[in-house]
Amino acid sequence: MSEIAPRTRTALAPPVVVATALAVAGLVLLVFGATTPVLIAPAKAAIALLGIGLFLNGASRVGKALAGPGFDVLFWASAAWLVLLALAIVFVDWLPLGEDRDVAATVTEPVFGIPTFTGTHPLGTNGSGLDLLARSLYGARSSLLISLTAVVVGTIVGGLIGIVAGYFRKAVDRVVGMATNSLLAVPPLILLIALATVLEPRLRNVALSLSLLTIPGMVRLSRATTVAYANREFVTAARAMGAKRSRIMARELLPNVLLPIMSLAVVMISVLIVAEASLSFLGLGIQPPEPTWGNMIAEGEGDVFEAHPHIVLVPGAFLFLTVFAFNIVGEKARQRWDSRSVKL
């Protein structure tokens, strides 16, 4: 295909054709590597990774040719993954998936089924015959729900406290500073374990205890940003035009604090996904049979991982890809918003 392209007259420029060919070849390799049962596992992995590399390279060239040199393939791949995951989470109840939590319904299903990427169990089954794709998607739902709730709560509470502390300073600032410092002084995992022993391991409680982790960082960032802006003359100007303190905080300071806070929030999501998975792995988060990525990985404890690596690798891959995607998107957001605030 790539050999013919330069000779025949096509509408697209040759580099685009080469790039498309690369991407397609990569996809073919990926599918071949993943679905061919005769290959041994390391060979499959090698072929699949090569396929991914080729695909990303090709897609990057296509994107650069079509959308200009600023095209960032990793960002778009990350965004695509997150959109795909979000859609899957929303529609998971209506998707034709295998059983995800009722062990009684899967007595006839194969146990420790290997991922075939086709058939009824595309990502295989676990020791009880439960479908891993279904479990991963339901797990994604609780993981993302928990971390998003925690980030939203933490951002709102931490951001507001930070603005108030940064604007009023003095005693308010000292009290808030003391509180955030003491919260930061407690090791996060130990704080979570302590909270988990007291609170019932339900979605709301896990989310609230995780939000405690985000609050100190948010308070510090929003306080620092507020202090920087509160000394600018536009705040004095607003005061000199008769604006109340509440109005100054809401209309003058909040819009300026919002951008840095939001970019920290995106990065925080990935941190909290990992924190939630750690809690579940330790058995302190959402309890089985309800699936989460953490408790799915925990099923690989003992000799199971050696015999059936996919039990751990499937939820691990979901976890890795999601955290990676959030980091890439968060980094992009930070760059964009930071450079804009510098320009202003």
């Binding site: 003359e233 005061r239 008769g242």
Partner: peptide, 24 residues
């Protein structure tokens, strides 16, 4: 005082770079 500010007396500040809110 707030009712006086703006209607009775107003102020023009020194630096127009910082006396306008960049996001408004």
């Amino acid at each position: 005082r707030r009712t006086l500010w703006g209607t009775e007396v107003a102020m023009v500040f020194q630096d127009p770079m910082t006396s306008l809110n960049p996001v408004k």
